[in-house]
Design a protein around this nucleic acid. Structure first.
Lengths: 152, 152
DNA sequence: AGATTAGTCTAGTCATCTAATAGGATAGAT
DNA sequence: ATCTATCCTATTAGATGACTAGACTAATCT
């Protein structure tokens, strides 16, 4: 399960992607538009900033904006920043591998084989979907041209 | 992330699948063989039994055994019993749908579109993989015939 | 019948995580 | 200097995760 942190992060990033190139957006604006507790969103954005996905500007006319193009930021990256590894088990994680203490022979663990498949399928989707991709799909739904929403 | 409950459940179910048709297996045996805290495993097996995946026999010569053939028990079913829904967000769950409180228009939510893909991919793998499938794959690894491990 | 064996059930513990909230510090704009 | 808005640290209530304890019940063996 995705935490609310990740969900809120994705929502805020989508706002920033839509507003990309038009100057900084206020935390309060994003919080209000997406129905996210404002103080909580602060923490989230700060973390995204510290990981290089966002930039900010203080003072009047300040706010947050994407650190790079919407097409260069993936869902997987955002989720990993807030929730950590995507893998369902540490023993199949690429970014945070850890063997199972009780596993005799990892290579012949059937559970691991299946969970590795799950990890790969999930990572493939999340890492290949950018903010731009999501914007396009939303657009496709709104304009009624939904065939687009399946063209990755 | 899979909980330890689910992981232990899968391990125990694999033991029972391997031993299928050969009479009941003791909790303690499974606990020892797989390095699972015994009392914790008790709870897990009880839950699996209450959901109809396992049967048990008390007294001497007792223990647990699968309620049906290994080919008729899927990874997805086991995981859902212990961890609940597989979906990364309640709003894309088939078994436990719940809308997001703060979502204006669910249909045009980009996050939801992507997470639905993730759910479908995950569910497809977990629901189409049975204990028997896993046993076969393990066997394939052990005998060195790993081409089998990709033949679902 | 009585002892032994093995699952059943209820409750409780302890640590960690989640989803926030609070409030002052810091830096930029005017 | 004074707004304005992010930055940073701390705190917290409640839930969840991962067990542990112990009494109870049912089946089997002698």
């Amino acid at each position: 399960m995705l935490s609310k942190k990740s969900k809120y992060a994705l929502k805020a990033m989508m706002v920033l992607a839509k507003e990309y190139g038009q100057g900084p957006v206020l935390i309060s604006d994003m919080a209000q538009r997406e129905g996210i507790p404002r103080k909580f969103l602060e923490l989230i954005l700060l973390e995204l900033k510290n990981q290089g996905l966002l930039q900010s500007k203080k003072g009047k006319g300040g706010g947050y904006f994407l650190g790079r193009e919407p097409r260069a930021i993936s869902v997987g990256h955002i989720v990993r920043v807030l929730d950590g590894p995507i893998a369902p088990l540490p023993c199949v994680s690429k970014t945070a591998y850890m063997r199972c203490r009780e596993c005799r022979d990892e290579r012949s663990c059937g559970i691991r084989i299946v969970m590795k498949e799950v990890r790969d399928a999930t990572a493939k989707i999340m890492d290949s979907t950018s903010l731009e991709d999501m914007l396009k799909r939303v657009e496709a739904v709104v304009t009624g041209n939904e065939s687009l929403s399946f063209a990755i």
